[in-house]
Design a protein around this nucleic acid. Structure first.
Lengths: 125, 125
DNA sequence: GCATATCGTAACTATTAAAGTTACATGAAA
DNA sequence: TTTCATGTAACTTTAATAGTTACGATATGC
């Protein structure tokens, strides 16, 4: 699909789409090609792409804790961070495991026949 | 402490402080009093106030998932939400357990002698 | 080669949520 | 009755994000 098509699909702008998925290209999840007939495709099979891969590529902060202190001199902040530091790691590890269990192919199955057909068409090409 | 003092402590505005902690008052964690000599105090002993209590009172979204779909017709969104619905619950439960283990008294100990002294003074009063 | 189509990206504007501010009413204490 | 504090509404400022415009680079088809 082109950025234009994706943008129409998501009710947003082609440039916003390109910006948003730039990280996925850099991570080798999507590949893009310019010029006539260009656009976006999966860079590897949907079975090999997990939500964990995508989250890593987009550098989303999965758990809303910042362990790095705003004010290193603040005793309260330091106490809270110390108390929660291990918790953050524990949560991130659990979440990453769960995200790693879901592939794009799984989601495509969930989406039903329509998307499956689209994937088959792409693979054939 | 007064909102003014807390604001100075946090480098912010007294009104912002009042707005921020309004939920803690409504939840019975802090109590405020007006007029001369007024200000904010703990509404109950620091040993009985956990970070989970505070998180609940402030209605912070602890896990950054919204299970409610932006567009209920979107097959992709529905598939992702279905795949992640249980994970959100799992993470929230784990986090809440961990937060429930940390009391303000624990943090005060961490903060060292200075804050401990302050608490003792308040309790005596 | 040239027209067309597409991404990449810089630069700008628009939108929105949060923080900050001002003002004033309410209430409590000296 | 004066002073000091919260409670809250209304407004302004700030910062992050989204959206837009413009244009260069590049690939395809004629």
């Amino acid at each position: 699909m082109t950025s234009e098509e994706i943008g129409a699909w998501l009710n947003t702008n082609p440039v916003v789409v390109r910006r948003s998925v730039a990280g996925l290209r850099e991570a080798g999840i999507l590949s893009s090609s310019r010029g006539h007939g260009g656009g976006w495709t999966l860079a590897r099979p949907a079975e090999t792409i997990t939500l964990a891969d995508i989250a890593s590529a987009l550098e989303e902060r999965l758990i809303p804790f910042n362990t790095e202190p705003d004010n290193p001199n603040c005793l309260v902040e330091r106490a809270v961070n110390k108390a929660l530091d291990g918790v953050k790691d524990e949560l991130e590890q659990l979440l990453r495991q769960r995200l790693a269990d879901v592939t794009l192919a799984d989601l495509a199955v969930q989406c039903g026949a329509g998307v499956s057909a689209h994937l088959e068409k792409q693979r054939g090409h």
